[in-house]
Nucleic acid binder design. Structure first.
Lengths: 181, 181
DNA sequence: AATAGTTATGTTATAATATAACAATATGAA
DNA sequence: TTCATATTGTTATATTATAACATAACTATT
């Protein structure tokens, strides 16, 4: 299956998310294999957490997921130990931030600047900068891909060389717009 | 003088910044007078600090400016007191964040999401969302105003209603591009 | 397999950014 | 003036992120 050609998921549109997750996970593995970069257990875990929804998650929210999983996966003995050691057992922030750094570098996740949060990329392998539609109702985020000619023309006009761009549009998606406004 | 019609300052272009400051300050005062909103001493102080340059400033950086001014403005006696009380005398973060909130609401300043920083608006009174060119060389930020038809069309296509937008383009301005790249 | 070099993870502490909650003061309207 | 409201001041704490260093895991070579 050629994932690069499959239609990108628009978060607001109803879709089989289970399928969506699997496709994106496969694509991620394939990409890292091709690039010879290491999608390790931790990085995979963070990606899996991000893939659970099309809603951006804060780093500490991701951390909480990991710690919850951590405590669930314990044997009775080690669970007891963990409880005795209290919060010290928990995974710490740098773990998450480093995994996120990797995923961002590989284009497997994006940072939503206006929310200090992170979201899975629905077009892994497409290096072009993306634009985001952020719904304030359902909190889902859709990823678009445009060339933004208007803006880039303006930038060029003043002699500006573009390295990267952040485009985040906040509002209400079709469904939430009906109910909200 | 009709400020609304004067050409907006493009931060990267050489200009008489003293004049720029005065124009923007007058425009701010005029706007608040017209709207019957209160540009109080604190708010004015924060706006003045932002107007010192076209570089975004962190909230705590603004705070530092205020505290520096605070200690300078003391009489010999009260300065002594301040020193005796140590850091407790210093102005605290909420002061700055509240002034910024006012300035953002009034469209006299913008928040640069990708830098968690704040910058003066160079088109006060223009409510339309702005776009920013952020230079990594000189760290200046230019404010543009475009209609972004491409993006809004895409948004409309998926039934999305826009409330607000963040557009931040990072790179190098004409001058810095020559030296850097 | 042992070694060494490198990359990744774990850990501790702390930096940087932002807000909640409540007290005191200033402002504007009656 | 007096009341109601808006603003500022203050204290404490929440939230987001990184520095610095220790340990462990991988990789290529012997």
């Amino acid at each position: 299956m050629n994932l690069a050609n499959s239609k990108p998921c628009v978060a607001f549109e109803r879709h089989d998310h289970r399928d969506c997750q699997h496709q994106l996970m496969s694509a991620a593995k394939a990409l890292c294999a091709k690039r010879n970069t290491r999608l390790t257990r931790r990085r995979l875990q963070v990606l899996e957490i991000l893939l659970q929804s099309h809603q951006p998650m804060g780093a500490y929210e991701i951390l909480a997921h990991i710690n919850k999983a951590q405590s669930t996966q314990l044997t009775p003995q080690s669970r007891k130990k963990t409880i005795n050691r209290g919060a010290l057992q928990a995974v710490a922030p740098p773990i998450v931030y480093r995994a996120l750094e990797f995923l961002l570098d590989e284009g497997l996740a994006h940072r939503i600047e206006s929310k200090n949060a992170y979201i899975c990329c629905v077009r892994p392998g497409h290096q072009r900068a993306a634009q985001f539609l952020i719904c304030r109702g359902c909190e889902k985020v859709a990823e678009l891909e445009r060339h933004d000619l208007d803006l880039l023309t303006d930038a060029a006009r003043v002699g500006f060389t573009v390295d990267s761009s952040v485009v985040e549009i906040t509002g209400h998606c079709a469904d939430c717009g009906k109910n909200a406004s």
